[in-house]
Design a protein around this nucleic acid. Sequence first.
RNA 1: UGGGGCGUAGCCAAGUGGUAAGGCAUCGGGUUUUGAUCCCGUGAUUCGCAGGUUCGAUCCCUGCCGCCCCAGCCA
Length: 567
Amino acid sequence: MSDNNSTPVTATDFIRNIIREDLASGKHQQIVTRFPPEPNGHLHIGHAKSIHLNFGVAKEFSGKCFMRFDDTNPVKEDEQYVEGILKDVRWLGYDWGKSQTHASDYFEQLYEFAEELIQKGKAYVESLNAEEIREFRGSLTEAGKNSPYRERSVEENLALFRKMREGEYEDGSLVLRAKIDMSSPNINLRDPVLYRIRKVSHQRTADKWCIYPLYDFTHGLSDSLEGVTHSLCTLEFEDHRPLYNWILAEVSAPCLPRQIEFSRLNLRYSVLSKRRLIQLVEEGHVEGWDDPRMLTLSGLRRRGYPASAVRLFCERIGISKSANNIEMNVLEDCAREELDKTAPRAMAVLKPLKVVITNYPENQTEEFEPARHPKNPEMGTRKVPFSREIYIDQDDFREDPPPKYFRLSPGKEVRLRYAYVIRCDEVIYENDKVVELRCTYDKATRSGAKAEGRKVKGIIHWVSTQHAVTTEIRLYDRLFSAPNPGRNDPEGNFINDLNPESVEIISDCKAEPELSTANPEDVFQFERVGYFCVDAKDSRPDALVFNRTVTLRDTWAKLEQEHSGQN
RNA sequence: UGGGGCGUAGCCAAGUGGUAAGGCAUCGGGUUUUGAUCCCGUGAUUCGCAGGUUCGAUCCCUGCCGCCCCAGCCA
C-alpha cells in the first residue's frame, strides 16, 4: 500500500495467531517473511494471495519481507520474467525496499553447505541415472532400496562433487543426494537429490556454475540466510517440511525458520496453474499473459481492476488450510466496491438507437452539468450537451414491454438522466427492425426543476448524436463456462470448457464528449451499465478502446431472467 | 491398500470443554434522477457420520466416510 500508516491487525487466521504467539513469547523480536516466485512465468491472483499474506503480515507486525527470486533452474527461467514480476508486485502496492534477493546470490554458500553435508557423511554422489534412481525409490506403498553408491567414502564424495563443480562430468551423469532413509514412508526423505549437473548458462550467474541446487536444498537455506522467521508456503509442500527441517539441522545454518503451509487459491470458472496459463497463451486462446480475461495481475490490471480491489479480495477470502473454491462474484464484487468509490461517472451507449425529439428546436443545444460522482463532490462536474437527436441503448426500449419494465416503450415515458422526461410517440422501422424513435419532451421536467405529479419510474442514459464520441468497447466475461474447467473431461482437458462468449467487441459505441480526453487505464462508471477502463495497449486518443471491467449489479436482468426461466 | 493434510450455512471463514464471530451470496424492506450505491432486517437447535468420556463436546477419545497432496536430476 502506498500509505505509510500501519495497517491495523484485524485479520485473524492461524498464521497470524502463530506469529502473535511467537512475538508475545519473545521467540522473535521481529518477524521476517519472503515472497519467493520462480522467474518462469507471470504472477496471477493466486500469487496475490501469497504476496498479500507475506508482505501484509510483515507490515502489520512491523517486520520485513524479502522479495526473493527462486532461480535455481536456469533451463526453465528467464530474466524477462523478473521485471514483469517486480512490476506486478509493485502495482499490487508492495515495497520490498532493498530486500530484493535471488537464490542464486547464495550459490557459493549453498555449495559450502553441501560440502559440509558430505563431510558429515550426510550426502553422497550418486552414479545411478535418473531412471535407476526412480526405480530404487520404491513406490507409495513399497520402501525404496539403497543405492550401491550410497556408501562411498567422504573423500571420494568430496572429490567427485568438486569435479562436478569443475565441469568434468556430463549433464545427468551424477547428482548429489542427501543420505536420509530409503525406506521412509515420506518419499521426500528417500535420499532426495540436492544438486544436478546442468551445463547451461544461468540468467544471473552466467557460466560460473554447471551444477545447480534443487528447491528442497535451496529454499530452507535461503530462508535461513535471510533470517526468515516464518516461511509461508502452500499445502503441497507440507510433505517437504521434514526435509526442510532436516537440512537446516544438519548444516550450520544461521537460524531455523518455521515453515507453515496454507491452502492455495481456487476460483470457480477459472484456471490458475502456471502450466494451464501457459497453455492458454501458447495455444492462442487468449492474446497473451495480459489478456483482460486472464486472472494474471497484468490481465486484471488491463481489465481495469484497481490494485485495491485485488487486495480487498485477498482480505475477503482469508487464509486457512482447507480446500476452497471461491465464487467468481467475490472477485467481481471487490472491483465494484472499489470502483464505486473512485470511478468518475459518464454516459455511454453501447448499442445505439436513434431518438428524435420532435418538439425540441432543430438547432438548439443545451448543456447539463452533472457531478462526476454522486457522493464525492470534490471530483467536480462535467458538461453533457443535449440536442434534438440523441442515442439511447437498444436495451432501454421494448416494443412489447414485459411486466415491470420501467424503460421506454410506445406511448410510455422515461426520464433521460440529468435531462428531460420524454414520451415515445412513434417507432420507425426499416425491414421490420426498429431504427428510430420519435419522441416528445416535456420542458417543465428539466433536471433540477420541480415537476410535481411527474413520477417517472424509469431513468435511462443517452448521448447527443452530434456531440458523441465513437468508441470501441470490449465486453469481457469469464473465460470459462464451467465452474471447474476440465473437471468433467476424462483427460482433464480444460480447453473444451472455454467460454465462447468471453469477449464481445462492439465498435460503434457512443460516449459523452467528456470521455474524449480519457487516458490509458482511466476507469469510468458508464452509468447504469458497468465499469470500463481505457485499454492500455490498443486505445488511441482518436480511437478510444474501453474494456469492461465488470457490470453493475443488475437486479432487473435477474428479475427478467427469472421470469423467462419460468416460461 | 504407505505417508501427509482437510471436512463449521450456497461460497469463504473465526471459534472454544459451557451452549456457533464476520464477510460474500440469497431473500425481504427503506432511501435514491444510475433497476447502481447506501441503510435496515434475514439463515446453523447445529459444526462429515457413528459411538464413547463428561453435569455439559463443534472443541477430548475411538471407529468410519468423503475430498486433496506426494513416487521430477520442477518449484
